[in-house]
Amino acid sequence: MEFKRFVVNKLILFFTLSTLITVTVALVGSAFAPDERFGYGTMLLPIKYAALCMLPTFVTFSRRELSPKAMLFRKALMLILIEAVMMIIAFTGPEIDTDRPEVILVIGGCVLVIFVLVHLFLWLKDSAEAKRLTLDLEKFQQLHG
């Protein structure tokens, strides 16, 4: 894949991640610390997390097209690295209460859910594109048939 297209895809992924992390933080936060109040700086946290989680996604970059098996391996590696990044953030930053083990489990689970959701969105995007291509193909065949 050419690098430009790879970067565009990563930008789409970044904004999708930011949205999903914001929703997750809101849901998990209201379940674990519903009375907590934050300053304006907190609003930047999902963007910061999304940006840091973007770094492991570069393991999927390849100039030649990867086989499904190789891509699956790199995606699994990416998930492990994202989990590691989130754990480092949780244990080194002041925002997350890591003394409660259930919080750590929830973070790990949320990363997995977001990972699945992102791939579901990408699948839906490809599915819509495939439908458009099929329609264009039908028109093409009617025109040249």
Binding site: M1, L66, S127, A130, L133, L137
Partner: peptide, 16 residues
């Protein structure tokens, strides 16, 4: 042969 394709579906990792 484009005239022999019935439909296009999404496949894994940006392929169709």
């Amino acid at each position: 042969n484009l005239m022999k394709i019935q439909s296009i579906q999404p496949a894994f990792n940006g392929r169709f």
